[in-house]
């Protein structure tokens, strides 16, 4: 998808807003569920303002106007802060399931690594949720853990993927506590260990924390910003679970896409109800 499209009128569009604790993601889709535009920004402290900025960018990319929006749905921690476009919301678990099944319409297990929490969601072949799990009140294995470690090592988040890929060995972290892990990282630095090997150990630790949440059944789909920006972490998961992980083109947008699909379905459902009522002369 090009980031700039010529101005056009795509017809009615549907907006999904995933107002995450770390990043806000907004997508614009058409009636067929095709992704027309998207934007991702740091959520910051003003969710509403960030959502507006994301929406403007996504609409521009889609070549659409605000008035073209036929339906919108929000999700994520800031889901109630986007009243300027919609009061409707669904949980991120529901939206990830919806988006995941849209991309991979089969029985799947979704692993989402978010900024503040991780989720494992299991869907049956019809896309119905069988169960889900969120991490407990602990940042281990989340994007927040990676951010903390990036600060401790004084390397940017962007650098971590290639640092881990170039590792020759792996320094394993023993603790599942972020604070204790940070201490372990500092100890490794003091002992002159290679930064690449430490970063690979951090990736490994994150993956272990996520995989111990639940058993993995069916095909595994990974989503979330950490996955989107760290291809090597996904490769490590492939190796650890012994089968390839499925990734959508934009793993970070999965929740927003699911929200937009809900908005579309609810709009179509309302339309059908109206049509039915009209045909009955009500």
């Amino acid at each position: 998808m090009s980031d700039k499209t010529s101005r056009r009128t795509p017809g009615p569009v549907y907006v999904g807003l995933d107002m995450g604790s770390s990043r806000s993601k907004v997508v614009v889709i058409d009636e067929a569920g095709k992704l027309l535009g998207h934007a991702v920004k740091k959520s910051g402290t003003d969710f509403s303002r960030t959502a507006k900025a994301c929406l403007d960018s996504a609409l521009e990319m889609a070549g659409a106007e605000f008035d073209d929006i036929a339906g919108a749905m929000s999700t994520g921690y800031g889901r109630s802060n986007v009243g300027f476009v919609t009061e409707e919301s669904k949980t991120e678990i529901g939206c990830l399931a919806k988006g995941g099944y849209h991309h991979f319409p089969e029985a799947i297990t979704i692993i989402d690594i978010g900024g503040q929490d991780n989720k494992i969601i299991k869907l049956d072949a019809a896309g119905h949720r069988l169960n889900f799990k969120m991490n407990r009140k602990c940042a281990a294995g989340t994007g927040a853990f990676l951010e903390e470690m990036s600060a401790r090592l004084d390397v940017s988040l962007e650098e971590m993927n290639h640092l881990a890929r170039d590792a020759r060995e792996m320094i394993k972290l023993g603790s599942y506590c972020t604070v204790f892990s940070a201490t372990e990282v500092l100890e490794s630095i003091r002992n002159g260990k290679n930064v690449n090997d430490i970063v690979k150990g951090i990736f490994y630790s994150m993956i272990r924390r996520v995989l111990e949440m639940d058993s993995l059944t069916e095909r595994v789909v990974m989503t979330g910003g950490v996955v989107a920006h760290n291809a090597y972490l996904v490769e490590m998961v492939d190796e650890m679970i012994g089968r390839p992980v499925l990734l959508a083109e934009y793993p970070q947008l999965m929740g927003a896409v699911g929200a937009a699909l809900y908005a579309r379905d609810e709009n179509q459902s309302a339309g059908a109800t109206t049509a039915q009522a009209s045909s009955k002369g009500e």
């Binding site: 669904k90 949980t91 991120e92 678990i93 529901g94 949720r129 169960n131 889900f132 969120m134």
Partner: peptide, 10 residues
């Protein structure tokens, strides 16, 4: 809240 709402959705 998220857990309960998601469970109810399920």
């Amino acid at each position: 809240k998220t857990n309960i709402e998601a469970f109810v959705e399920q």
